[in-house]
Computed example of a mutant assay.
Amino acid sequence: MVATTVSRRGENGRAMAREWLQRRQVAVYAGAVALAVALAVGRPSTAPVLEGLIDPTLAVLLYVTFLEVPFVRLRRAFRNRRFVGAALATNFLVVPAVVWLLTRALPNRPALLLGVFMVLLTPCIDYVITFTGLAGGDAEQVTATTPALLLAQLLALPAYLWLFLGPTAAAAVEIGPFLEAFLLIIALPLSLAWLTEAWAERSPRGASWQAAMGWLPVPMLAVTLLVVIASQLPRIGDSLGQVAAAVPVYVAFLVVMPPIARLVGARLDLPVGEQRALVFTSVTRNSLVVLPLALALPAGYELVPAVVVTQTLVELAGMVALTRVVPRWLVPDRSAAEN
């Protein structure tokens, strides 16, 4: 009896902690970003150590994120061909055209252009799930689509870089880090999440482990932002003048893509949750996974990681705004809109 009471109290405590974090997650992320900036400015020597933590931190983030969605619902969401097709078409047909138009005003600097194209042509596969959920979108559908999005960008990115920048820039990008990212950041966490769910169905200890992991998505996203920004912000400081040229393009992308994705979702008559999910998967970019790719570039492209991380900083501010704009004005509930 005492053990049962203690166990229930522990479960209630974890549930309260999780609820508290979810209600305040935007503030938690803002605090993580502020701490990362302070660390980068005050202790720039820690950047190399933190850079080595990016991949494992991302892997843990995706593991606890995948655990949020039961695999029964995940399989059902993946069979939603209309949404998956809309996400692929918007990200790999519409977005490249928009990005090409937006970058016409940029100076002809190969490293700057390569960084902008690398990050804007690759749809997000990690914290897009969190922000979609915050906006009342179908996070399960986004989660189910992430493997297809990653595989598609693996194939499409070299082709688009060759088309937009020529063979030299395309050849500079090695596919190895992308394959490594898929195996370590997607396939491994997804497999471990599946094994954890199977364990939880058969064992009380497994169920307890899964419940304990339930409060980690918000802290892990905060840790990921801290690690990425603190490790890469010194690069931006060294080349601020050159990187600043990309900021208007990033802002314009955040403004232009939501109504376009909204129009696509409405034309396909997707449910409200899926329309919101389509907006976020069309706008949020894969900066955290592209960063290792940028760091692996040869000499002459040292500016690219700073260009990529700058997009992360712009996008985070945009995501906070979009979690409010999308459900209130861009894709409101149909019942509320009718009233």
Score class of each variant (00 low, 15 high):
residue 117 F to A: 13
residue 118 M to N: 05
residue 118 M to F: 10
residue 121 L to P: 10
residue 121 L to K: 06
residue 122 T to H: 11
residue 122 T to Q: 06
residue 123 P to Y: 06
residue 124 C to I: 03
residue 124 C to A: 01
residue 125 I to G: 02
residue 126 D to T: 13
residue 126 D to R: 07
residue 127 Y to R: 00
residue 127 Y to P: 05
residue 127 Y to T: 05
residue 128 V to S: 05
residue 128 V to F: 04
residue 129 I to Y: 06
residue 130 T to P: 06
residue 131 F to R: 03
residue 133 G to S: 10
residue 133 G to A: 12
residue 134 L to F: 09
residue 135 A to Q: 00
residue 135 A to I: 06
residue 136 G to L: 09
residue 137 G to V: 09
residue 138 D to T: 13
residue 138 D to C: 11
residue 138 D to L: 12
residue 139 A to N: 02
residue 139 A to V: 10
residue 139 A to Y: 02
residue 140 E to Q: 12
residue 141 Q to Y: 05
residue 141 Q to V: 14
residue 142 V to P: 08
residue 143 T to Y: 08
residue 143 T to D: 01
residue 144 A to Y: 04
residue 145 T to D: 01
residue 145 T to A: 14
residue 146 T to K: 06
residue 146 T to L: 10
residue 147 P to N: 10
residue 149 L to C: 03
residue 149 L to H: 04
residue 150 L to T: 11
residue 151 L to M: 14
residue 151 L to I: 15
residue 151 L to R: 09
residue 151 L to F: 14
residue 152 A to S: 14
residue 152 A to H: 06
residue 152 A to C: 12
residue 152 A to N: 11
residue 153 Q to Y: 10
residue 154 L to D: 02
residue 155 L to G: 01
residue 155 L to W: 03
residue 156 A to R: 08
residue 156 A to H: 08
residue 156 A to Y: 13
residue 157 L to H: 07
residue 158 P to D: 04
residue 160 Y to Q: 10
residue 160 Y to G: 08
residue 161 L to A: 06
residue 161 L to K: 10
residue 164 F to C: 07
residue 164 F to D: 01
residue 165 L to S: 02
residue 166 G to E: 04
residue 167 P to C: 00
residue 167 P to K: 08
residue 167 P to F: 03
residue 167 P to S: 15
residue 168 T to Y: 03
residue 171 A to L: 09
residue 171 A to T: 07
residue 172 A to L: 11
residue 172 A to G: 06
residue 173 V to N: 06
residue 173 V to I: 06
residue 173 V to Y: 10
residue 176 G to R: 15
residue 177 P to F: 09
residue 177 P to A: 07
residue 177 P to R: 10
residue 178 F to K: 00
residue 179 L to E: 00
residue 179 L to G: 07
residue 179 L to M: 12
residue 179 L to W: 09
residue 180 E to K: 13
residue 182 F to K: 00
residue 183 L to F: 12
residue 184 L to E: 07
residue 185 I to Y: 11
residue 185 I to P: 03
residue 187 A to M: 09
residue 187 A to C: 04
residue 188 L to A: 15
residue 188 L to R: 11
residue 189 P to I: 10
residue 189 P to A: 03
residue 189 P to W: 07
residue 190 L to A: 15
residue 190 L to T: 09
residue 192 L to K: 02
residue 192 L to H: 03
residue 192 L to Q: 00
residue 192 L to N: 03
residue 194 W to K: 11
residue 194 W to Q: 08
residue 195 L to M: 13
residue 195 L to Q: 12
residue 195 L to N: 02
residue 198 A to V: 13
residue 202 R to I: 10
residue 202 R to S: 14
residue 202 R to K: 15
residue 203 S to N: 13
residue 203 S to R: 13
residue 204 P to I: 05
residue 205 R to G: 13
residue 206 G to H: 08
residue 206 G to T: 08
residue 207 A to P: 09
residue 208 S to L: 12
residue 209 W to N: 00
residue 210 Q to L: 14
residue 211 A to V: 12
residue 211 A to S: 15
residue 211 A to N: 15
residue 212 A to E: 04
residue 213 M to Y: 01
residue 214 G to C: 02
residue 214 G to S: 14
residue 214 G to L: 02
residue 215 W to T: 14
residue 215 W to L: 15
residue 216 L to C: 05
residue 216 L to T: 08
residue 217 P to Y: 07
residue 219 P to C: 06
residue 219 P to N: 04
residue 219 P to R: 02
residue 220 M to R: 04
residue 221 L to V: 15
residue 223 V to R: 01
residue 223 V to L: 15
